[in-house]
Write a protein that binds this DNA or RNA. Structure first.
Lengths: 218, 218, 218, 218
DNA sequence: AGCTAATCGAGACGGTACGTCACGTCTTTAG
DNA sequence: CTAAAGACGTGACGTACCGTCTCGATTAGCT
């Protein structure tokens, strides 16, 4: 049944898939996304070019999958296995839960500080930067970036914020998605622009300002 | 005196420079940044490739300059000629002044709505998206992007915010640069990700939340 | 096993090879060697440039092979099929036999007249001129020119001269190679210099003088 | 009167002309004719490109003139100043006289040995090879090569051969030009092809064979 | 001696071709 | 039928020179 267009995925070689993932991540880390080529990935992975073209539509798609796979493996490795501990916030595929100690500011700071660390880690950051850049220019990839990478990771924030709203910690007339952007966008902004240092202190400041507002008490 | 590395800029052809700018902007608008090639720009501009390589280090640099030139020409054309009106906020190279009516929220909304319109205009947006994407991956270009494109355009905001601070409209313990990021980053975030609509209403909401904060009055 | 430097010649496309030969010969004939470019050959042959660079080190090498191939095909087509007639002189790859009627002068004249005709034929002459010129300046190519083009074609002369020597028609103390040069060089000299007409009469004269000598009988 | 096409040669800079000659010869000697460029000559001579294009039609023309100039200067320097000694053979522009001791074979051997030495000298040989090669492919240049370089140098041979003919040393029915080719062509043949060593012994052998003929006494 | 016109050095310009790299497709051989 | 290998047509890369052109700055030769 499987024509040339849709190869039979049951016969796919897992060895090759993983080797391609590894090669893609390694090359992007070593020489940058622009200088990473499909031929280079194939050579490094010890794989024929066609094996890449058969299963992925583009270099970016390879990298995206490679990164998601890496992130999943990490999460699986580091993740607490006791489902009991997951608490109210839970933990979805790809996204770490936001703690809920009752102190919203403290919870957000804790999580955003971790995000800052992740963004400052060159290993994880390189592929994500590349994917973000490519997604900015290519809408289809951008949608994938948001849907497969970003959304799963931000959903816990929305959940936490909604909980805070129910607890009266956050105004009722605020859309949690907008609140999320108010908190997260300044960090990613600095990360993408590299114009100012992205520190824990900055994350704290952003949380404080976002929650309290910029205007003085009336 | 001028060595082979740094050509004599006094003998540079203005006709070619402008033709290259125009061709670059046109091509990026028509076929996208990725499919725009230096050969294509040269051919369209009726210019030898070497003339591009002589004066610019990269495709991105050409586009950057082309866009800045365009923006300057536009600003010069649209700019209010009465220097008297420039008032407190003034108007620097490339950056439009933020009005100061005394009502900070209204002033910010007015200006951010204009920014939203600009970001939604496909003509201006295409080159800026491309430059942003390239800058994310190439730190040197990113610095240029910030220094030559972004900073001049955001400086008036900082000025306005500082004025608001002096007028007691904004808390004294807020760094105006951070305040700026709180206001602007959510907009650029949506613009880059294309995941949610970038509207005037959203700009208003962001201003309101940023100024008042997310937490209810204690 | 085949490294990147030495491509796998078993997978080489014969269609492309032949198309390249034809294009090279055609272009050299039409616009001359100097104005023949590798890009032009590739375009005319409907072939990628890389396919030329993969298999030949230079434009001259392409032309050399193209010409040898042409000459071989011609010889195969014109060649006498009756192996019985090959006689004493035989016929090696690329070289036509020199007849042996017992009259050395007549045999040489017959063959050298044919050579004159060949040299005066613009179709064959154009590539050979070009290769000769290139070989004069590039020793490596010159060696190929001699080894692959010239030697096979002159070897029958040496054979015939040696036979004549054994028959007592030629002095015993003469090196047949030198004798060959005495006969052939004046023709190629005129051909290369184009200063004097290259005719059958001239070929005859050269044979007569070379055999009898310039000095009168003592 | 002098339009743009025919520059006023009275105002020509001798310094530049000589510098260009020197640069051309030096470069051809150092990197070969193919890698010698007009830009390179100009740079090396400290001269604008236009100064070359104004006075010479091609790279080959520059080299030709440079070589002739060099040869003239050498001849003027080495040449015997006593015109009395010039004897029967005389000495024309560029060509050294062939001695006339009465022994034709000895005289020819002496001169041809000198020619062999000259051809084996890499300094003189490099430009002449280049010019010969170019002349083979470009008929106009070839004519110049013959007329300005070769003919002046071979004329003395013809004169000497004619004298020998009058003295009964050479058959009356021999065209001196053909005789010249019989003697000289084998040498240039070896020189151009580089397939066999070009030695004094070879020159001697050629003279002997040419004068006595290849056939045994009848 | 001063004027004026051409030549000079320099090098930017519109081009063409170079030789290399990577693209995405296709074909071959092995499992 | 997939996979490794890699040749193929394609097209852009960045470089080197081409021959033309435009600049001041000499520099003659003629008033």
């Amino acid at each position: 049944m499987a024509s040339r267009k849709t190869p039979d995925s049951t016969r796919r070689s897992d060895r090759s898939r993983r080797a391609i993932h590894d090669a893609a991540l390694a090359l992007v880390g070593e020489v940058g996304y622009g200088r990473t080529t499909i031929e280079g990935i194939a050579a490094r992975a010890g794989v024929g070019k066609q094996t890449i073209y058969r299963w992925w539509p583009s270099k970016a798609a390879v990298l995206m999958e490679a990164f998601l796979d890496l992130a999943d493996r990490r999460a699986a490795g580091t993740g607490r296995t006791g489902a009991v501990e997951e608490g109210r916030a839970g933990r979805a595929e790809g996204g770490a839960a936001v703690p809920d100690t009752g102190d919203l500011a403290a919870d957000l700071k804790a999580v955003l500080r971790a995000t800052v660390d992740e963004l400052n880690d060159p290993v994880t950051a390189a592929p994500v930067r590349a994917l973000a850049a490519e997604g900015i220019v290519d809408p289809a990839l951008g949608a994938q970036f948001v849907g497969r990478l970003l959304d799963p990771r931000t959903r816990p924030y929305v959940t936490r914020l909604r909980a805070a709203q129910e607890a009266g910690e956050v105004r009722a007339d605020v859309d949690p998605h907008i609140a999320l952007e108010l908190l997260l966008a300044p960090l990613t902004h600095r990360w993408l622009l590299r114009n100012l240092p992205l520190t824990h202190a900055y994350a704290d400041r952003v949380v404080d300002h976002a929650l309290r507002g910029l205007s003085p008490m009336p």
